[in-house]
Nucleic acid binder design. Sequence first.
RNA 1: GGAGGGGUGGCCGAGCGGUCAAUGGCAGCAGACUGUAAAUCUGCCGACGAAAGUCUACGUAAGUUCAAAUCUUACCCCCUCCA
Length: 316
Amino acid sequence: MNNVIDTIVIAGPTATGKTRLSLHTAAFLKKEHGLDAEIINADSIQLYKDLKILTAHPSFSEMEGIVHHLFGILDPNDSSDVAFWEHSAKSIIKNLRTQHKIAIICGGTGFYIRTITDGIAPIPEIPQNVRRKIREEFSRLDRDKFLEKLAELDPYMAQRLHKNDTQRILRAYEVVFLTGKSLSEWWRMKREESQHNIMTFFLSPDRGQLRELCHLRAQKMLNSGARDELMDFMARYPDYRGPLSKAIGYTELILFIAGKITETECIDAITTKTRQYAKRQYTWCRHQLSNAQVIKGTGYDESITYSLHEAIFLSV
RNA sequence: GGAGGGGUGGCCGAGCGGUCAAUGGCAGCAGACUGUAAAUCUGCCGACGAAAGUCUACGUAAGUUCAAAUCUUACCCCCUCCA
């Protein structure tokens, strides 16, 4: 209906202060422009309601007075995926629009964020039993055999995917198997949506700074009770193997709880994992979020906050 | 003091006469990425070089051999067990 910015995206590597920046931005919009803004989570792991310390949820005091969406909405055994997030986020954005509120999308899952501007292919959902059967077949057959089967149904994808990339091979297979159409054909059907009312920022601190932030984050996590939180979780979900178990720090903390590593070793291991993750996110954002404005610095930096607000001010 | 085991590239750890600049793993660097994305996967990784290649390397020194990380001797340092 117009070209005025009504959606602000704050992306970037973990530990760079995205949460803080989004909170400040919401406060700024209210104070300076009398605009209400609500925050939408774009972090795949913060979708879950448990392990809030480990997954770095904003605290209650931080969230004060600002409406937050899509935080802690899933149980540990629920599964999430891009399409689920896209649908949820877009319906919230639409809603906010009708109320003349600004949506601030904040999170580190670039893959999710990209759907805001680029959308996603309209592939039907694959029923659980089909997925299970395919997985069983994969583990029964050897890898090359399975790839041959894929090649029969979908030579293009079979050739394009690396043979060790199990996850993508399985996906390509389940899609052709169920729909009779190659993933690549589905991709071509993706609707292009041209959005002029979205402003995307991408936080990009320098390496040394990021290193330090990752370390601080790991330390803070332990100091705020991540260990007890996980012990409590383990008691409630014995033998848990769901999506939350891939959270950074999950395995490391379990080793620490079991007395296999010291606290310092645990913090160091988490720091390393965090840094590696941050690198992947950085590479992703740089190459995939093509029309994002790069902000050299962190959300903890006052001058960054200021210049971001200035940029928003000019478009809002 | 006696008896053994060991010292390998940033770390861990294989190799035990040639095919070894040295399997693996970790860490590091770069990258991919269309419904599991805090996931999944790829490449590089002694120095110099675009490459062919050249050089320096397996605790130190000396030796045996056409050839040594691999065998011998001495020395230095670690660890375990017995006293």
